[in-house]
Design a protein around this nucleic acid. Structure first.
Lengths: 224, 224
DNA sequence: CCATCAAGTAACTGTTTAGTTACCGACTCG
DNA sequence: CGAGTCGGTAACTAAACAGTTACTTGATGG
């Protein structure tokens, strides 16, 4: 979409490093992206304010439009970055190197803990779904990222079926959706749930219990 | 649109029949509430437009402010109404009158189908959670509504434990959250999921498969 | 040493928005 | 019958908003 840094690398970084501390395109760009992630996560696409993003990033609107075009393109960039982050971390798990049962358990644990540590990712997903994936659908970078996940998961399930520990009906997409469902709903809906049930779901004890519950449910649904 | 100086409307004012057709406070009120439900569900709290609600309801802003105070109070009213609707329908199930296993299965089926038929409810939950239940927390009508659900569910689980079909560790809140998670995530995130996995999740065949999956997962996690 | 160009600032613009005011017409009841 | 009330309309206002323009600063290369 835009080729950043092309002009910057042309000139040799000859002069003193402290002089460039005043102007730092890379840093400004990164600051805008991070500020935008927080603003969009907290307020949604409709509620996010361009002025607020600029202020949070310690810069101003002119720079934001300079680097990202407009609000919508900035939002898409934020969303793409969020997906790339989780899929990259997930890939590093290498679930197919363990025993099938351990592999699935590891994936469930990883997913839960990632969701727990990245509430902004859940928020962005919620916002994007409110708008029926209007912006995500325009993204070109994302399909490949996800076919890998399903492929590896499928491999683990097949292995488990051959070893006789998993049922023949276990489906990779269903298994992933089960894991993601249980983590996503508990966290993203914690506020209304805590309110209506009059119980704080986010205490360490409750979080720990739900973590064990996710692993238990996921495995008991596919074990022979 | 503007029919000033019309002679017809002046002479036709027979008290009983024609009277309520011109002015109908109940109907206007209900129309605003329904229009607001759709507008808030489609655009969130930040994205919803008061003008759009008034237009959808076939009235104008003055009436909206007259009946509901302001945008925030209208939103809270919409949210409360949505909760009352699902809990009322749920209560009519009377899950404790069946066998424990059937009771849980019925609750799972009901929840899934209700979510499927009321996407606006899921949307409103998403919006409210984005704002950390800011408005729902101010509601006074909602606690009792939900203690009943947990109470009845608890009763069914106890019965199942005594009969030896459910494990001793089965917890009513966990069971409900499991059912709700699996339904909520699949539907509310259908747009991003369909996009990233390149598969339409909302075909009749896929919906049917997921319905069976929910019942299967819920029961297999608590059966002895 | 100055022409140039990119990084960055701040004030501005046209539009949209929530909320208000002024008003209308019909019905009610003292 | 006429003052007041109620359901309803439309035009208005002040603020907020996304996006733009005119400008400053400072480094660099000829």
């Amino acid at each position: 979409m835009n080729d950043t840094g092309e002009s910057a690398k042309k000139k040799v970084k000859r002069p003193s490093a402290e002089r460039t501390a005043q102007r730092d395109p890379e840093r400004t760009r990164a600051a805008i992206l991070e500020a935008a992630t927080r603003e969009f996560a907290e307020n949604g696409m409709g509620g996010a304010r361009v002025d607020a993003i600029a202020e949070r990033a310690g810069t101003n609107k002119r720079m934001l439009y300079h680097y990202f075009g407009d609000k919508e393109q900035l939002y898409l960039r934020v969303l793409e970055e969020a997906y790339v982050s989780i899929r990259t971390a997930e890939r590093a798990l290498n679930i197919s190197t363990r025993s099938p049962e351990e592999g699935i358990g590891e994936l469930a644990l990883f997913t839960w803990r990632y969701f727990l540590q990245h509430p902004e990712f859940l928020s962005l997903l919620g916002t994007e779904n409110l708008h029926r994936a209007r912006w995500l659908r325009q993204s070109v970078r994302l399909k490949e990222l996800h076919s890998h996940l399903i492929g590896e998961l499928s491999q683990v399930l097949e292995e488990g079926k051959k070893a006789g520990v998993f049922t023949e009906t276990a489906d990779p997409l269903h298994v992933y959706l089960t894991i993601a469902s249980l983590g996503y709903f508990y966290l993203s809906n914690q506020y209304t749930l805590s309110t209506i049930f009059g119980r704080d779901l986010i205490t360490p004890a409750n979080l720990d219990a739900w973590e064990r519950h996710i692993v238990h449910v996921t495995l008991s649904s596919i074990k022979r």
